[in-house]
């Protein structure tokens, strides 16, 4: 019995490319908006999780390194980690942090704050990232790019840690975008009757 290979199994390359490009020029971080919008579009208009099921670069990244290359230790995840309370709590926290990025962007746009060329990991550890800064866009756009890159890198590191210790796609059990899109799909079924 052979498991079929599909082109989208190679999408893990996009994850590597994305984080590499953000290391060179922070403007590339804005490409992360694709990963924000596509799953929502699939869920809202298609009522499905095709993005998670096939086209998510992170899902494929975890699959490739955790499962195919065998880097995962495959411990069982604790029940609380895929409980609704934790999933919804983490989702709210995550999107609140995204709201924080928008707020910081607004402060720079209003010239209340100046552009801060740092990448913040785990919402508290700041790393200087000025070599990737840019003057090609307004400071507010650059600020948003720094914030988005911080969020993407933080979640990637959590996903990586979960992959190494638990099963390859352990992150997917509490991924905020996965939780949100499943919520939208369930709501769509409920409203259809």
């Amino acid at each position: 019995m052979k498991i079929q290979q599909h082109w989208y199994h190679n999408l893990w390359l996009w994850s590597i490319l994305y984080f590499s490009l953000g290391f060179v020029n922070i403007l590339f971080a804005l490409l992360g908006l694709i990963s924000f919008c596509l799953p929502l579009l699939f869920a809202i208009f298609g009522g499905n999780k095709l993005f998670c099921n096939r086209y998510c670069d992170r899902g494929q990244f975890l699959r490739f390194f955790g499962s195919k290359l065998g880097l995962s230790r495959r411990h069982d995840i604790p029940d609380w980690m895929h409980s609704n309370i934790f999933r919804y709590g983490f989702m709210i926290f995550f999107f609140a942090m995204f709201g924080g990025i928008l707020y910081t962007t607004w402060l720079v746009y209003m010239e209340i704050n100046s552009l801060s060329e740092v990448v913040t990991l785990f919402w508290c550890l700041e790393f200087p990232w000025s070599w990737a800064g840019t003057t090609a866009v307004s400071p507010a756009v650059a600020q948003f790019a720094f914030g988005l890159y911080s969020l993407m890198l933080t979640s990637e590191l959590i996903a990586l840690a979960a992959m190494l210790y638990y099963r390859p796609r352990a992150w997917c059990t509490f991924c905020p975008m996965g939780t949100l899109t499943q919520m939208i799909c369930k709501r769509k079924i409920a409203t259809k009757g």
Partner: peptide, 21 residues
């Protein structure tokens, strides 16, 4: 959580996700 990981490994195509749920 409807992540679809199981779909990807099933050699018989026996799994599907019901309306993203």
């Amino acid at each position: 959580v409807a992540c679809g990981t199981c779909l990807d490994v099933c050699p018989r195509g026996a799994l599907s996700i019901f309306h993203g749920s």
